[in-house]
Computed example of a mutant assay.
Amino acid sequence: MAKTGKARHRRRKRRTPVGAPPGTLIADPAARATNLCLTLIAPDRFRSIQNASISDIAANREDWPVMWLDCAGLADVSTIGEIGKAFGLHPLAMEDVVNSDQRPKVDFFDDHAFVALRMVDDAVLHRYEQISVFFGEKFVITFQEREGDPFDPVRRRLAAEGPNRLRSRHADYLAYALIDAVVDSYFAPIELISDEIEKTEEGMLAGPQKGQMQEMHGLRRELAALKGVLWPLRDALAALIRNDDPFVTRETKVFLNDTLDHAMRLIELVETQRDTLTGLIEMHLSLTQARTNDVISLLTIVSTIFIPLTFLVGVWGMNFDPDASPWNMPELRAYYGYPAALLFMAGVACLLFWFFRWKKWL
């Protein structure tokens, strides 16, 4: 999991200036270089063009039933703007593409839909990025902040020999497959968090340690971030299923329903893990308090045993002269006075120890 003991530095996203016209595209200074990958899809054939250009899109658009354009990196806003013009994408949706801090949502336009999601970029580091999906009757366009995505299984299915469901269906089914891959990618970080929770629980049962509370609060922050992504993701999937636009077919909605079930399952896992962490935090506090009470009880008992011994030593340590008066501690002249005093004090200590055991205070 991510190191929770160190301070977290969040990169500030660059936003559109106040008062700028709607649809203004401004690149984030930290955005990665833009790279296009064009995938051309037909029931009986398949072609992939790496480092594609706008001219490749125009040259192949009419010859293929479905095309998937994957844009990795959002630095080149001019190319992104040309893509929007080539496919007639709505300017407000294009603005949301480059402002990569959008809440997961879905918007419907006349001939296409826009879906903004949060995608797992690194399950180990718990790093996420925005993935924007446009799809219409014959095209699917994805915009991601950097290279690296969970779409490799989809690419392998597309490249498989012979006709298959992914190549023979419309663009909305390809969009479903990509969205489903994004949703399923959340199982990996949630499983990692679950493993961390189990390790923390086992360590806590062996004995609470100082660093465990910090680790649990870090895990709780990660789960809160996941919850903030998964709830609007569920709403976006539900909106896709409820819509009546013709470019989302009834057959695809059946598969989107399965993806919605996955999202609900993820939310349930996150809620369960948050409840488990809450219980572990309370148990850690209880164990720490109980340990503190045990220490205080032991110190109290030790102090209680030594109180009468200290009193006896103080009495016998007074400098009285037995020659001056028979009342001035004549036992100071006893031949076995010192060992007798030690035995007497040991007897007092043993008696107190037995009394505490009898009262079950030890």
Rank of each mutant, 00 (worst) to 15 (best):
Ala2Arg: 13
His9Thr: 08
Thr16Ser: 02
Gly19Cys: 01
Gly19Trp: 07
Gly19Leu: 01
Pro21Ile: 01
Leu25Pro: 09
Ala30Ser: 09
Arg32Asp: 03
Ala33Gln: 10
Thr39Ile: 11
Ile41Thr: 09
Ser53Cys: 05
Ser53His: 09
Ser55Cys: 01
Asp56Tyr: 00
Ala59Asp: 12
Ala59Trp: 00
Arg61Trp: 04
Trp64Tyr: 06
Met67Pro: 11
Trp68Gln: 03
Ala72Gly: 05
Gly73Met: 06
Ala75Thr: 01
Asp76Cys: 03
Ile80Gln: 02
Gly84Glu: 06
Ala86Ile: 09
Phe87Ile: 01
Met94Ser: 02
Glu95Met: 00
Val97Thr: 03
Val98Lys: 00
Asn99Phe: 08
Ser100Gly: 14
Asp101Leu: 05
Lys105Gly: 10
Lys105Phe: 13
Asp110Ser: 10
Ala113Ile: 11
Val120Cys: 02
Val120Phe: 02
Val120Glu: 05
Leu125Glu: 09
Gln130Ser: 02
Ser132Tyr: 02
Ser132Asn: 13
Phe139Pro: 10
Val140Leu: 12
Ile141Ser: 01
Ile141Phe: 11
Phe143Asn: 07
Gln144Gly: 15
Gln144Met: 15
Asp149Ser: 07
Asp152Arg: 08
Val154Tyr: 09
Arg155Ile: 01
Arg157Gly: 15
Leu158Arg: 06
Leu158Glu: 15
Ala159Ser: 15
Gly162Leu: 12
Asn164Ile: 08
His170Pro: 00
Asp172Met: 02
Leu174Ser: 07
Ala175Gly: 10
Tyr176Val: 14
Leu178Tyr: 12
Leu178Asp: 10
Ala181Asp: 13
Val182Tyr: 09
Val183Asn: 06
Tyr186Gly: 00
Tyr186Asp: 05
Leu192Thr: 14
Ile197Ala: 03
Ile197Thr: 09
Glu198Val: 04
Lys199Gln: 15
Glu201Met: 05
Glu202Cys: 08
Gly203Leu: 15
Met204Thr: 05
Ala206Asp: 11
Gly207Met: 08
Gly211Tyr: 05
Glu222Trp: 06
Glu222Val: 14
Leu223Thr: 15
Ala224Glu: 02
Ala225Met: 14
Gly228Lys: 10
Val229Ser: 03
Trp231Ser: 10
Leu237Ala: 09
Ile241Cys: 03
Phe247Glu: 02
Thr249Val: 03
Leu256Phe: 15
Leu256Val: 07
Leu256Ala: 06
Leu260Tyr: 11
His262Thr: 10
Ala263Asn: 09
Arg265Thr: 05
Val270Glu: 12
Glu271Cys: 13
Thr272Phe: 10
Arg274Ile: 08
Asp275Asn: 11
Gly279Asp: 04
Gly279Thr: 08
Gly279Cys: 03
Met283Trp: 00
Ser286Cys: 08
Gln289Asn: 13
Arg291Val: 01
Asn293Glu: 09
Val295Met: 12
Leu298Glu: 01
Leu299Glu: 08
Thr300Arg: 11
Val302Thr: 14
Ser303Phe: 05
Leu309Gln: 07
Leu312Asn: 06
Trp316Met: 15
Asp321Met: 02
Pro322Ala: 03
Pro322Gln: 06
Ser325Arg: 05
Trp327Tyr: 14
Glu331Thr: 03
Ala334Glu: 15
Ala341Asn: 08
Ala341Cys: 10
Gly347Tyr: 04
Ala349Glu: 13
Phe353Gln: 01
Lys360Asn: 13
Lys360Glu: 14
Leu362Tyr: 04
Leu362Met: 14
